[in-house]
Design a protein around this nucleic acid. Structure first.
Ligand SMILES: [Mn+2]
Ligand SMILES: [Mn+2]
Ligand SMILES: [Mn+2]
Ligand SMILES: [Mn+2]
Lengths: 219, 219
DNA sequence: ACTTTTTTTTAGATTTGTCTAAATTTTAAT
DNA sequence: ATTAAAATTTAGACAAATCTAAAAAAAAGT
């Protein structure tokens, strides 16, 4: 079956919200999509009759397994396009989200298959988020927040949760990017800031706010 | 200003129909877009209030210079994407039109700028049609139909007007593609068929119907 | 010149996705 | 346990894009 751009955006947003909380609320979804709660209720009725969500009035909702599969497919398209935009067209990663938001709705399966192959079957998008495979299987990257890493440990940056231009600017300043290796020197108890050393650069201190947005894995 | 997918499709179709006849009729546009004449009239009123067309009731219509510029920009996007699909993703040229029909509406100017550069500023799309530049300037490729070429002349295939899978199959069989060099041996008066010789292949005869769809230029 | 046919436009509905304002239900607070 | 606040749903309206059926205008035929 084929879904409208609007339906796809709703499905994908429910998916993303479900990563944090099992069941999603009307307000949170309205907020995510920059629409009004009333619109969400309307769309949810539709998604329910199409059997993509479990929904009980006033009780919140979640994707069922069909809905989940569709969501993962949209996420797949979104992230493949983001990868294309950064690695082939040379966009900065803070500029690609909105464009991928449109490209993800182009509905040819063959297109995505070929794009995937053209990009050499990437596993993660430019923000470090895993790209689901054709069957909707998505790698769970076990990662920790920089604030949780013990001192003197070497880690690799795997993803960044805040993907704003301001964050990119900051990360650039610190020479941090996805897959950068860095060492945690010390956590400061006073304000939670963290001293790190990025490859051959002089060690520096990042605020807790920044550290909280950087996710890393060992080795 | 920003236009809806529907508006863009109408604008582009008017542009294409104007290549053949100066002013476009309601029926022909409805036919081109697979809609009903009533829908065309509705949309034309809108395009008129947006000052993109010259339109007099019952009299037909045409794009004004603003409308023309917008059309050329859509055509530019469409053809750049077609080039991408064929030359980067390996699609056959009979499979790309519908996908480009969707991609052309993705509205980032930066995207198209970078795509153009990524593709090395191509001048023509996979069907041999010229790609308008950023300013809406489009090369007029002076070309002739194969039926009009005098015998014993060497020519280069510049475009193909029928872009169906059936035509592609036929052309493949004859080893004809865009920019293929071939020689016209003889025109047969009986049925208008044409004997041609394609590079090192044995000479062959193509029907008038096929010849009429192949456009070539000298040298 | 009149009549018929074709083309185009209007009138009125329909679908999709959205909104505001009011009603309802749930949750939190006293 | 009531009451107040917050969240959610309903009711009703609206814009965009489409359609069908009927009316109007233009073109073609005799
Ligand atoms: Mn989207
Ligand atoms: Mn991403
Ligand atoms: Mn289109
Ligand atoms: Mn083309």
């Amino acid at each position: 079956m084929n879904y409208s751009v609007s339906e796809e955006n709703y499905i994908k947003s429910i998916y993303h919200l479900q990563q944090q909380t099992e069941t999603v609320t009307t307000n949170s979804l309205a907020n995510e999509l920059h629409t009004k709660p009333a619109s969400v209720t309307d769309m949810l009725k539709k998604l329910q009759t199409k059997k993509l969500v479990e929904y009980e009035k006033y009780r919140g909702f979640k994707l069922n397994s069909t809905g989940n599969k569709i969501a993962l497919n949209i996420v797949r398209r979104h992230r493949l396009w983001e990868f294309f935009l950064v690695n082939k067209l040379g966009f900065e990663w803070d500029k690609v989200h909105d464009i991928a938001e449109e490209l993800e709705h182009v509905s040819s399966a063959d297109l995505i298959k070929r794009l995937d192959s053209f990009l050499n079957f990437p596993q993660t998008d430019p923000h470090g988020d895993p790209i689901p495979d054709t069957n909707g299987k998505i790698a769970i990257i076990k990662q920790q927040c920089l604030t949780e890493i013990a001192a003197k440990k070497n880690v690799v940056v795997s993803s960044v949760s805040n993907q704003s231009p301001e964050m990119l600017e900051m990360l650039k300043h610190y020479h941090i990017a996805i897959s950068t290796t860095l060492k945690v020197n010390k956590h400061f108890a006073f304000d939670g800031s963290v001293e790190i050393k990025v490859s051959q650069h002089a060690s520096c201190i990042i605020s807790q706010q920044v550290a909280a947005n950087i996710f890393v894995h060992h080795d």
